[in-house]
Nucleic acid binder design. Structure first.
Length: 151
DNA sequence: GCCAACGTTGGC
DNA sequence: GCCAACGTTGGC
């Protein structure tokens, strides 16, 4: 079992939107590293922290579960979609996504500041300088620590 | 293949 | 709104 963290802008697709939808395709990822994680390493059943950037507070707001194998990101083929990519062809898709199922919304989110302060979460990609990865792995050690902090 | 210019992310 | 950090693009 692998653990992950995905970012969403709070005013774009929020944890409340996700809670309402129950399930969503994690489309619109246009970064190769992030795509490779989804394509090569995500497995059905993996647990995924739902992180809000540029929100109040910025931090972890919920938990999700990978609910599908990787599949082509259809928004890349749609000219009217903001994530349209003319280079991605339907017979050879550049971009993929997975489906995520809603698990829970935390009553008290764990803020980025709290994560930075915690001595046991030092290996998180999230707090590394210049981190911009919107899909990133979380070590089992960090996962357990986050779970206990989010109880 | 280098690298400057540009666009985006995301904390503050 | 600012700006540092980073990825991508495109001229050469």
């Amino acid at each position: 079992m692998n653990y992950w963290l995905v970012k969403s802008e709070g005013n774009c697709y929020s944890i409340d939107d996700f809670k309402h939808d129950k399930k969503t395709s994690w489309t619109g990822i246009r970064n190769y590293q992030a795509r490779n994680f989804m394509r090569d390493s995500m497995k059905k059943g993996d647990l995924v922290f739902f992180y809000h950037s540029m929100s109040d507070p910025t931090g972890i707001h919920g938990l999700a579960k990978v609910a599908s194998t990787p599949h082509p990101d259809e928004t890349a083929f749609d000219k009217d979609d903001e994530h349209y990519d003319y280079k991605s062809k339907e017979d050879d898709p550049t971009w993929v996504c997975v489906d995520l199922a809603f698990v829970k919304k935390y009553k008290t989110p764990l803020s980025l500041a709290d994560i930075k302060k915690d001595s046991k979460l030092g290996d998180m990609q999230l707090i590394k300088k210049g981190d911009r990865l919107s899909v990133q792995p979380v070590s089992e050690k960090s996962f357990k620590r986050l779970q206990s902090l989010l109880k």
